[in-house]
Computed example of a mutant assay.
Amino acid sequence: MGLVVMVFAAPLLQVLLVNRSPWGGPDLVTLAVMWLALARGPVWGCAAGLVAGLAADVTPPADGTVGRTALVLSVAGLLVGFWREGRPLPVAAAGAAMGVLLQAAAAVALGDDPWTAVVPELPRTLGWTVVLGALVGVLLLRRRPRRIEPYRV
């Protein structure tokens, strides 16, 4: 339940806290989607990406194409949900990196931001998001109960 609430709260926290900090910070919307996909699977990850992405697209100051973040995060959440059975650290880090990089690529491809605006902010945001995503992703997967296989005679 807490992860679902975080998906709805992440765009607001991103705008109010992280975007105003002078040293940058992680992309909380991407992290919320990745954590839910790791904890619940591909369907929840895709749905969370759609909901959180649309919320992030319309949260002021909305300056880009509506639906861009929703598309990117729903694809990233779906893929992370499928990959979650592997090793937790690489999956969480790769999912967080994929979300940030795909958002930057989509912003440039759709003409919302020029490369000169995206590239200087990308390393700092990518670093914060990957490190935080990997750490919490490992904790989430260790907390998840193992699936019990039925005994066959």
Rank of each mutant, 00 (worst) to 15 (best):
P90D: 07
V136Y: 12
L12S: 05
V118W: 04
L101F: 09
D113L: 15
A32W: 02
L141A: 07
L78W: 15
P88T: 00
A104I: 00
A10D: 06
V72D: 07
A94T: 06
L17A: 10
A105H: 00
P150C: 10
L78S: 09
M1C: 06
E121P: 06
L13Y: 11
A106Q: 11
P150N: 06
A134N: 13
L141C: 07
L110M: 14
W35N: 04
V18S: 03
L141D: 11
A70D: 03
V5N: 02
L54K: 00
L50P: 02
V33H: 08
L89Q: 09
R20P: 00
A55P: 00
V75G: 03
A62R: 14
E121I: 07
C46D: 00
A97M: 09
V130H: 02
R84T: 12
G25R: 07
L31W: 10
F8K: 05
L28T: 01
S21W: 15
L13Q: 13
E149S: 08
D113M: 12
L89S: 08
V58R: 05
P114E: 10
D57A: 03
R84I: 13
L102N: 08
P26D: 08
A37K: 06
V58S: 05
P11L: 08
A107D: 03
A70K: 03
A93I: 10
G81A: 04
A96K: 01
V100C: 01
T116M: 12
T69W: 13
R124E: 13
V80T: 09
T59S: 11
T116A: 14
L110E: 04
E85L: 10
R144N: 02
N19M: 11
A10C: 09
